[in-house]
Nucleic acid binder design. Structure first.
Length: 127
DNA sequence: TTTCTCACA
DNA sequence: TGTGAGTA
């Protein structure tokens, strides 16, 4: 069973494939890497190789973006997740508990990050 | 051909 | 973020 996890972590997808799978531009994917949201492995000529887990994370990021959250907000979310993941490891909570807490953090951030003036999450990049 | 980095709009 | 330049 653990074999699957290893395979999911195998970075074998070039950015071109990731682009199609996530519907993101190479620019965005690389940018998210800059923001440490995804850490693709590098192979041969300095080429980025993404794993299935990376695809998943990218899809998740795209989701947050659609909800009007900016990079700062997303980074905060992942920072929280990492912190939570470590904390929760010692308390043996269920996935539902994790989800609830994460959701709570998410709402908290989405309501604060956007603007210092508007309390509600009205971050619509209308153009 | 595809991806990379860098830099400018 | 998009895009173009010059590489590898």
């Amino acid at each position: 069973m653990a074999e699957k996890e290893l395979q999911r972590s195998k970075s074998v997808l070039p950015i071109g494939t990731v682009m199609k799978l996530t519907d993101l531009t190479a620019r965005q994917i690389r940018y998210y890497e800059e923001q440490q949201l995804v850490i693709p492995q590098r192979t041969d000529g300095n080429r980025r190789m993404y794993s299935l887990n990376d695809i998943d994370k990218l899809l998740e990021i795209k989701d947050y973006l659609n909800e009007g959250i900016n990079m700062a907000g997303i980074k905060a979310i992942y920072a929280q997740q990492k912190k939570r993941a470590e904390d929760l490891q010692n308390e043996s909570l269920t996935d539902n508990d994790v989800r609830r807490i994460l959701h709570d953090e998410f709402l908290n951030i989405s309501g604060l990050e956007p603007n210092s003036g508007s309390p509600l999450h009205s971050q619509r990049p209308l153009k």
